Computed example of a mutant assay.
Amino acid sequence: MLLELTDDQRDLARAVDDFCRREAGSRDQREKLTDGGRLHHNEDLYRRLAGLGWAGVRVPEEYGGLGGSHVDMCLLLERTAHGMLPIAGMGVTFIVANAVARFGTAAQKETLLRSVVAGDSQSISMSEPGAGSDVAALTCKAERTDSGWRVNGQKTWCSNAHYAQHLLLVARTSGSGSKHEGITMFHVPLPADGLEIRGIDTLGGREVNDLFFTDVELPEDAVVGQVGQGWTQLMAGLSTERLILGALMVGTAQRAFDDALAFVSTREQFGRKVGSFQALRHRVADLATEIEATRLLVYAVARMADAQPDKVLAREASMVKLKATEVAKRVAIEGMQMMGGYGYATEFDMEKHLRSTIVSTVYGGTNEIQRDIIGKTYGL
């Protein structure tokens, strides 16, 4: 690996790898942890990880976290994804923790960031049936009351909500001005009276949910940041969010590559290892090169984010999300092709890699949107 790391970062990567091997290193272990592959997040396992301090890798030390860097965070995410640790809630939890650390009140930080460190899962709700890529078109409404706020409306594609302890809700608090104005973030403890969480069946199982808010009452201090500034606050967190997605997909791509390489190195056809055929050997070389280049991009941008914590790295962060997800999807598809029918069989992990990566070019801002953002930074 070409990546330059400090001694502490190398120690972190080794420790996480050891944890993954010990807790979920075999397929039998992962089957038990996920109820035969039906679950994506094992809460007990995540709390054991949190017990080592890693859930608070980016949480400031004054709230019990490690106060680590974006590079540290990316290392943790990459290695847990490579280890296929069933803790799907971690990435979204880190996104929420970043928003609270930036914009939360002292009381919110004390409560929510310490809960992140303890291993509580967080969820964030932005998308709506009529507001997907165009998130600013959201209509879920929070109206002022004598005691705080009342929320009504529907959200969709909400990750983690069926097991999370807290929800970061993005809702409309004003209809005046442009659609980017009048948006506010709220902290919603889960479960909440008046909130129905309904799972959505997908290719990957139950990962996301529809949320239905019916007169959900929130106190005045549920606002995270400033009323009406939710859009600006969302944009401020994009660098971290896209680094999280990029690191997870680099880890998944590397695991899919490693599984395919192990297969073609042992599988024999026509009297020789199939990996010795030039067609497959060249494919392996191309995929290895793409993964290494992508990893370098992710960590280069992570270092930029550490050096310029208040700067929105619109171009670079979108490049991370675009490149990492496209590469991960390609590796899984070509890995399945190299493994033939075995790559399609559920007794091997490759079909799971495909399901995990095929949607990655859609969530967190579609790759079409990422390309548009990148193009605009060049004045187009």
Rank of each mutant, 00 (worst) to 15 (best):
R144W: 02
E143W: 02
G148S: 10
P189E: 09
W157I: 11
E128V: 11
P189W: 13
R172E: 02
K155N: 09
T156R: 13
A137P: 04
Y163H: 12
M185K: 09
H162W: 01
A164Q: 11
A131D: 10
V170Q: 00
L168H: 09
H166V: 00
L167S: 05
L138K: 02
H166T: 05
A136S: 07
H162I: 04
A136I: 04
A161K: 02
S159Q: 11
Q154E: 15
E143C: 10
C158I: 13
G175V: 09
S178T: 14
K141I: 07
P129G: 14
R172P: 04
A131C: 01
G130L: 12
S178N: 03
V135P: 02
S176C: 08
G148P: 08
A131P: 03
N160L: 07
M185Q: 07
T173A: 03
K141N: 06
T173P: 01
S176E: 15
D134V: 10
V170F: 14
F186N: 01
G130E: 12
Q165C: 05
V151Q: 04
K141A: 14
A136Y: 07
Y163R: 03
H166Q: 15
H166A: 14
I183F: 03
G148H: 11
V188P: 02
A131F: 07
G132Q: 12
G130R: 11
S174E: 14
V135W: 06
T156E: 07
H180E: 11
T156K: 13
K155F: 10
I183P: 01
P189G: 01
A164Y: 03
Q154S: 11
V170H: 10
Q154W: 04
H187A: 08
E143M: 08
I183L: 15
S125R: 05
R150Q: 12
V135E: 12
T156F: 09
D134E: 13
G177V: 05
E128T: 04
G175D: 12
T145P: 00
R172L: 03
S176N: 14
G175I: 01
R172I: 04
V188E: 04
L169N: 05
A164L: 05
A161H: 00
V188N: 02
